[in-house]
Design a protein around this nucleic acid. Sequence first.
DNA 1: GTCCGCACTTGATCCAGGTCATGGCGTTGG
DNA 2: CCAACGCCATGACCTGGATCAAGTGCGGAC
Lengths: 252, 252
Amino acid sequence: MTGIHQLGRFSAHRVAADDGDELRFCSTCVFGRVCLPKEVDKSALVELHCLVDHVGPFQAGDHIFRAGDRFNSIYAVRRGMIKTRLHDESGREQVLGFHLAGEMIGLNAIHPAKYPCDAIALDEAEVCRFSFPALATLALRMPGVQRELFNLLSKDIGNAIAFAGDYSADERLAAFLIGLSRRFSERGFPADTLHLAMSRGDIANYLRLAAETVSRVLRRFQDHGLIAVDGRDVSISKPADLFAIAKPVLQR
Amino acid sequence: MTGIHQLGRFSAHRVAADDGDELRFCSTCVFGRVCLPKEVDKSALVELHCLVDHVGPFQAGDHIFRAGDRFNSIYAVRRGMIKTRLHDESGREQVLGFHLAGEMIGLNAIHPAKYPCDAIALDEAEVCRFSFPALATLALRMPGVQRELFNLLSKDIGNAIAFAGDYSADERLAAFLIGLSRRFSERGFPADTLHLAMSRGDIANYLRLAAETVSRVLRRFQDHGLIAVDGRDVSISKPADLFAIAKPVLQR
DNA sequence: GTCCGCACTTGATCCAGGTCATGGCGTTGG
DNA sequence: CCAACGCCATGACCTGGATCAAGTGCGGAC
C-alpha cells in the first residue's frame, strides 16, 4: 500500500474530533503538555493542531499500518488498544507491544523510513495521525515540540528493553499486569480492574512464553489470592504482593 | 557522581583529536554525514564541532558513565568497544549492547534525564562527548542535525528489539556474530575476522544464555566448519551458512 | 621457575517451561 | 437447533538450555 493509497483510506475513516478544539488537544494526547509551558506561541500551536488528523474508528483486527509501508506519520492512540507486531516470512510472529490511549506508535519507523512492524487494533480504536515531516519542521521552531519528540523516542528505547532480561514466567506476568495497571491509571482508568483486550496468545508471545504458561500462571496467581481472573477481565487484589514478584523486571 | 564532578573527571582524561579538524569530523563519526548535504552552513558546522569533547582514553573496566548519573551528554565511540549494562540492586546484570567506533551511546537517557545504565570500556577506548542541550539547540537551526538525531534515536529502538523474540541458542549466536561482522565491516574492519573484546559471560548475558551454552555453541559451529575460534578471535569461514542460521533473528 | 587467579571448556544432571493432547465454553452461521 | 470454530484451561510428557562440578590453559606477580 502506497502513501497515497493510505491517505485515501484514512480519509474515508475520518471522523470529527470529539474532544479538543482549535487550540486544545485531546485530554489524553502526549503533545498536550507542550501547551503548558509559557513559551506557548498561539500561532504555532494552531499549526501543530492543524497537522493532526483524527482517523478511525478501526475495528478489532484492522491494520493502522503494515510492515513495509512507507513511513510518513506517527500515530497517537486516541481510543482503544493497538498491538504492534512483526512477523517474518516463515510465519513466526513477535508482538512488540500493546498501546493504550495517549501513547504513540510508529516512532521506530523514522529511521528505516518505513514501518518495521504491523499495527493492529485489538478493539474498536481511533488514532491521531501526525505528519512526521510537518512535525519535524514545526519542531525546528518550537523547542517544546522538539523536546517532546526526543523524549518520546528516548522513552521508547527504554520500553523496548523492559522484558529484555531473562526473567521467570511469574516475574514476566506480574510485571505485565503491574505495568498495564500503571498505564491504565495514568490515563484515568481504575488501576485495580484491567480489561485485557488481547488474547492469551498475544500476551504469551509478547512475554516470550507459551499460551499455556500464561494460563497456568494466571491460575496460580488467582489461587494465591493475588488477582481474580474472569476471562479477559483481571482485578488485582494484592498489588503490593504482585509488585514484589514483578520487582526484578520493573526496577531495571 | 554529579554532573560537575563528571566534567572534572573527563577533563583529566582529555586528549587532542587525532583526526578531524575544525571543519571535519572524525571519519567514523555518526554526525559526519550532516556535513555532506548542500545545506551545510560553515558557521553552524563550526559550532557543532565546538560542542564536541574528545575524552579518554579509558582502560578496560573504566566507566564512561554510570546508571543514575544526571544526563547531560550523548557519546560517540571513537575507538575501542563499550558495553552498556544495567544491574539491579540484587546483583542481576543485564548487558544491553556492545558499541563500536562510530556508534552512539546515551540516547536512552534523554527521557528519564539520567543514565539508566552503565557504560563500561571493554578495551582501551576513546569517546566524543556531545552536550545534549547544546546539540538540541543547534538542531533547532540545523535541520540536518535534528534529522540525524531522530534517525539515531529511532534506530536504537530497532536495535533494542533485535533479540527480543524467542530464538534458539544457535540462532542467537549466529545472529550475534553476523551482526558484529556487518558492523565491523561498515567501519572498515575486515568482516571475516572478529575480535570479541567482551568475555563469554558478557556475550551470554547479552543473548540471555548461560556462558557454558555460548562455549558449547561456538564449539559446535567450529566443529561444523562455520567458524574458527581462537580465544577471543573468531574468523567466519562460511558466512552464508552462518547467516542461514541467523536469518530468523535478522530478517525481522 | 611456581603459584595464583581468572576465563574458558567440557561433562553430568536437573528443571522451567514448551509441546502435545483433550475437553469446555462462548460465538457465529446455517 | 446443532455444527464449526476460536479461545482458553488443564493434564501428561519432553527437552533445550541452565546449573553444578571438574578440569584446562594462560598470564601476571614475585
